[in-house]
Amino acid sequence: MLSATDRELILATQAGLPLVPDPWGELGQRLGLPADEILARFQRMQQAGVIRRVAAVPDHYRLGYRFNGMTVWNVADEHIRELGQATGQLPFVSHCYRRPRHLPYWPYNLFAMVHGTSRNEVETKAQQIRELLGTACGEHTILYSSAILKKTGLRLRRT
């Protein structure tokens, strides 16, 4: 259960942290708390699993990355953990997941999202993943985004 103060902190930040040099101090002023307490509350909520992380989420479209490809791979099961972790650590992979196959229609079990300023850039990055996966990978393809979806996390309502 969230304390009233933690709930207010989530409400104050669910649209983003203040874009100022000291966001913890700014939040503290708004809520009447010291900056170190704001930070400690975020850390406790993260440790308790209430929030997953505090991170920057850039708008990649505004940065010029308008081509988005979900690369999907058929990776040998005995190598999926090791190669999935290696793929997820590539600097151009924004997220990477293991997913179940749905044979005979869907043989892919590793998904890795890449963004680029052109289709060619996405394909070049996919080729780098292909080289990393080596002989442990069978077939693969790239699924390109066709629409921009609004991405937001959980939103609390004021009561």
Rank of each mutant, 00 (worst) to 15 (best):
L2W: 10
L2D: 12
S3L: 09
T5G: 08
D6Q: 15
P18H: 10
P21Y: 11
P23N: 06
W24I: 00
G25F: 08
L27D: 03
G28A: 08
G28H: 01
R30F: 00
R30T: 08
L31H: 00
L31C: 03
L31I: 03
G32V: 02
L33K: 14
A35W: 06
D36H: 12
E37Y: 03
I38T: 10
I38Q: 06
I38H: 04
A40I: 00
A40C: 00
R41G: 03
R41W: 07
F42S: 05
Q46R: 14
Q47R: 12
Q47T: 09
A48D: 09
G49L: 00
G49C: 01
G49H: 06
I51Y: 00
R53M: 06
R53H: 04
V54N: 01
A56S: 10
P58T: 05
D59E: 13
R62L: 15
L63I: 08
L63W: 09
F67L: 07
N68I: 14
M70N: 13
V72A: 11
N74V: 02
N74A: 15
D77C: 02
E78A: 09
H79K: 14
E82V: 11
E82G: 04
L83P: 05
Q85S: 04
A86S: 02
G88L: 06
S94T: 15
S94P: 00
P100Q: 12
R101V: 14
R101G: 09
L103M: 15
L103H: 08
Y105F: 15
Y105E: 14
W106Q: 09
P107A: 13
Y108S: 04
F111T: 03
A112N: 04
M113E: 13
H115G: 04
G116M: 08
T117P: 01
S118F: 04
S118I: 05
S118E: 06
R119W: 02
E121W: 05
V122N: 00
I129M: 10
I129T: 07
R130Q: 13
R130C: 10
L132F: 09
G134P: 12
A136T: 01
C137M: 12
E139A: 13
E139L: 05
T141H: 02
I142L: 06
L143P: 00
S145L: 05
S145T: 11
S145Q: 10
S145A: 15
S146K: 06
I148L: 14
K151I: 11
T152G: 08
T152E: 15
R157Y: 11
R158A: 14
T159P: 14
